[in-house]
Design a protein around this nucleic acid. Sequence first.
DNA 1: AGCAGACAAAAAATACCATTTTTGTTTGTT
DNA 2: AACAAACAAAAATGGTATTTTTTGTCTGCT
Lengths: 155, 155
Amino acid sequence: MSETGYTCQQVMHITRLSQRQLGYWRKTGLIIPKQRTSGGHARYSFADLLILKTARKLIDAGVSVQRIRKSITSLTDFLPSCNIPLTELSLVATGDMILVLHRKTAFEALTGQEWIYSVAELEREAATSRGIVEPEQKELFTTSENTHKNTAVNQ
Amino acid sequence: MSETGYTCQQVMHITRLSQRQLGYWRKTGLIIPKQRTSGGHARYSFADLLILKTARKLIDAGVSVQRIRKSITSLTDFLPSCNIPLTELSLVATGDMILVLHRKTAFEALTGQEWIYSVAELEREAATSRGIVEPEQKELFTTSENTHKNTAVNQ
DNA sequence: AGCAGACAAAAAATACCATTTTTGTTTGTT
DNA sequence: AACAAACAAAAATGGTATTTTTTGTCTGCT
């Protein structure tokens, strides 16, 4: 015996996903455990469990299963050969989207569109684009008066 | 003379925004320069320039002006008294939303909804939820067979 | 226990239309 | 040069109806 892998019940308990969900996801190809018992019953690996727990978290954050689906397929395109350690990745999700943060960049899981914008960076950019520098405020969108002026304009 | 601030033309050149846009945004209250020449002409401050450059970047990322509007108003609500240094903030935007990253958290500029999820954290969590630990792969969503096994206990 | 099938309810995505917002262009004024 | 006003085109939004996806529940099978 000593079948490796998690049984359906265990996975259900750990992830709080229903049997129906696991079954449907298997059937529709979202997560298909590679291992099977001799009787043809599913055995989920630890990696599968990670995926399922991730999916659970995303669902809790309001992401629909369809979005998760699309994100999975496009992520496997963008990050094909695993040279990005899991520990360096962060997911940020709201109902509308899933972002993958890696070091100083971010890209949307679905489209792969990348867009990170550091305000500090902008500040330098704007300062250098003209000789004129007028270190006034450092607010984001407000132009009110509240000054904790930094000595220099940048860095 | 020595009027401080940027003229319309300068701003147009720096931000690649049209005169029509600047005018409309003034009229509708998106960005209203406080300074004026004696003739009543607008003079944009450096802070205004930062805002405009930010807006430009957001537009380039596919964010609509209406979203930018709403984000501005709600951000000034969430971050009222500037105790968050500008250099610690990052904006991440795609067409659908604007996220504000601050340290280890992220929240949507519009709703303020917060949601950050570190995959590394998940890994620990999943590992401890059962005694069984089976460090297999460190992929995100793939379960393919590839490489760099850690001190394996497995197969 | 684990699976599959069938039915219906709930949730999500899609398509379409009406309305509003934004922008370009032109004209004229200071 | 900067601005305002006016018209039209383009973009974005909101709302509703339609379709698809997902899930729960039930039944039966191994």
